[in-house]
């Protein structure tokens, strides 16, 4: 057993709308070890995104504990969470979420503006990340000049440029054609294998099971037992 980087213990999240309680997660206990590539699968409304929100510290659990890298996320202040996310977490979103007025290079550089790195050091980090995702030649292109697959690769470069230990990917293939989706999943696997990045991938794309090292399923807010785990890298 490796070191657990994400530990969820009996996590329950209930949303309240007016007087109605909507349970999104029920008593979820989950561990993600350093170096894991975990695909968290399930239909819409199963609680996948809620789980990511809790791990990223965007939201707090109704009960239970969420620890990332040994730190209790729900106990951190807003300011501490911001700095912690910048240092330790990389995000990849379904809709890429690049800033349209910035070039690919500048989008990747964005999280580095919060660090103490010099301009030269920032440039070096950005070029490294862009080369890793195979888009060094597109550095000065704006998002509108890139294909969906390329946009997502830029977003992955942005996620890894600060060298975080954990990458949270929310449906990263959801807006891509089959070929681009395969290439993004392959890139994530490469990051996992070569750079030892821990990846937590939330998806209902069945192709993910061929790339992840582990697969867990959520259904109606409940994490299905380990027997259901079946994803093994091909």
């Amino acid at each position: 057993m490796g070191e657990a980087i994400v530990e969820l213990e009996r996590v329950t999240k209930i949303f309240r709308r007016d007087q109605v309680e909507i349970p999104a997660l029920r008593d979820v206990t989950l561990e993600v070890e350093a170096g894991d590539f975990l695909a968290l699968m399930g239909p819409s409304g199963s609680g996948k995104t809620t789980l990511l929100n809790l791990i990223a510290g965007f939201d707090r659990p109704t009960s239970g504990s969420v620890r990332v890298g040994g730190v209790e996320v729900s106990r951190m202040s807003e300011g501490e969470l911001s700095a912690w996310r910048n240092r330790h977490i990389g995000f990849v979103f379904q809709t890429f979420n690049l800033i349209p007025v910035l070039t690919a290079f500048e989008n990747v550089e964005l999280p580095l503006l919060l660090t103490r790195l010099s301009r030269q050091e920032r440039r070096e980090h950005v070029w490294t990340a862009l080369r890793l995702v195979g888009l060094a030649d597109r550095a000065d292109h704006y998002p509108r000049q890139l294909s969906g697959g390329e946009e997502q690769r830029v977003a992955i470069a942005r996620a890894i440029v600060t060298d975080p230990s954990l990458i949270l990917a929310d449906e990263p293939t959801g807006n891509l054609d089959a070929r681009s989706a395969e290439s993004v999943l392959a890139l994530l696997r490469e990051l996992n294998e070569q750079l030892r990045k821990t990846i937590l991938l939330v998806t209902h794309d069945a192709r993910a099971t061929r790339y992840a090292t582990r697969v867990r399923h959520l259904d109606k807010g409940i994490l299905l037992p380990l027997e259901a785990e079946r994803g093994v890298r091909g």
Partner: peptide, 16 residues
């Protein structure tokens, strides 16, 4: 709205 949320996710603070 979405970009602001992205910036927050990347580690930008409220005041920034």
């Amino acid at each position: 709205t979405r970009e602001i949320a992205v910036l927050r996710a990347l580690g930008f603070r409220r005041r920034q």
